[in-house]
Amino acid sequence: MNLVRSEFLKIRTTNAWWLFGLGAFIMLALAFLINAVGAYYTLSDPSTEGLNPEDAAAFEATQNAVYQAANLYTSGQFFGLLFVLLLGIVVMTSEFQHQTVTTTFLTTPRRTAVILAKLAAAALAGAGFWLATTALNIPATIIFLSTQDVSSQLGEWAVVRSMLLNLLAYVLWGILGVGFGVLIRSQIGATVTAVVLYLIGTIAGQAFFSLIALWLNWDWFDDLRFIVPSIASGLMVSGNNIPGQPVFWVGALILLGWSVLTGTVGTLITRTRDIS
């Protein structure tokens, strides 16, 4: 616990956490606006005219209040997770950036304990981001749904489940950030690479699997896009199961697997790496 507290002290005494928090807040406001506009038109115009049977079934699954409420309550997840990832990277790479890693390991020679403390601090910081964004999403969503004559839907388990799984996503992405920071020790190099992989990788992964599936007429291949962590995160917070897509818990298992892998690899590398 002393190690975890020291990691929080490092986070609190730098500008990174509030800069990332400010960025997450701005993107949250934009995401909620987009989701609210989408929910307004979806709830007010449920027509599936002109759609093929598969697209019509998928669209109908998004038309109910449960799906839209879950989407609104988890607004800002995409960019929020990116900022948590970056914070996790800073937790690790700042040691090398400011050349404090030698002092850290001399003070606490057990490297595994140090990495576990960093993983715990990044995970808890991710939970803090989730708490802040959810605290803003809840009243905003309730107000919006009331304007559409729809109840808050907070009594629906699917909605509550989405919010709790969103918490899990924020926690796991903090762990991913620490693991990524171990692989690339340069703070600038790690943050730039992470942003490019997160943004471009999400779009490229979506396009690659969809185009190959369309080209070869392999419908199952399109589901492989959910191995991309950011896409899996979106799947796990969906309020309803969408026809043609894996169920929500598949996304949770994939993201959990990525977190365990990066956390384990990061710990093993740090235990044997020369830090001089």
Rank of each mutant, 00 (worst) to 15 (best):
A123K: 01
W249A: 05
M1L: 10
S238E: 15
I115D: 12
S94W: 05
A36Y: 00
V101G: 02
G174L: 02
L22F: 05
G266T: 01
A120W: 04
L22Q: 03
A190V: 06
G251L: 05
G174I: 03
L172P: 01
L211P: 04
F221L: 15
L131F: 14
L33S: 12
Y73H: 08
A158E: 14
I26L: 15
T103G: 15
F129D: 09
V4E: 10
G88P: 13
L3E: 13
L116D: 11
G205V: 06
L199P: 00
F96H: 12
V260H: 10
V178E: 14
L172Q: 08
P243K: 02
A213I: 00
A135S: 13
F32P: 06
R161G: 07
W17F: 13
P139E: 12
N35S: 14
D274T: 02
T107P: 01
L119E: 07
P109Y: 03
P139Y: 09
A113V: 01
W130E: 04
W258P: 02
P109E: 06
L81G: 03
R225K: 15
I175W: 09
L199R: 03
G80P: 11
T13L: 05
E95V: 02
I26T: 05
S186C: 04
N2Q: 15
N137V: 08
R273P: 01
G181I: 01
L43C: 02
T191I: 15
S75I: 09
V101D: 12
L131W: 09
A232C: 02
L87P: 11
F25I: 12
F25C: 13
V101Y: 07
H98L: 11
V37G: 09
A120G: 04
T272S: 12
A213D: 11
F129W: 07
F226K: 06
A31T: 14
V178D: 14
S44F: 03
R110K: 15
W215Q: 15
Y170A: 02
G179P: 07
L253I: 05
T267C: 12
A57T: 04
T100C: 10
T193R: 08
W218Y: 13
A135R: 04
A140R: 03
T193G: 15
G201C: 06
S238T: 04
L82W: 00
L214D: 14
A31W: 02
E156P: 07
R12H: 11
F79M: 15
T74S: 00
I203P: 04
A132K: 01
L19C: 07
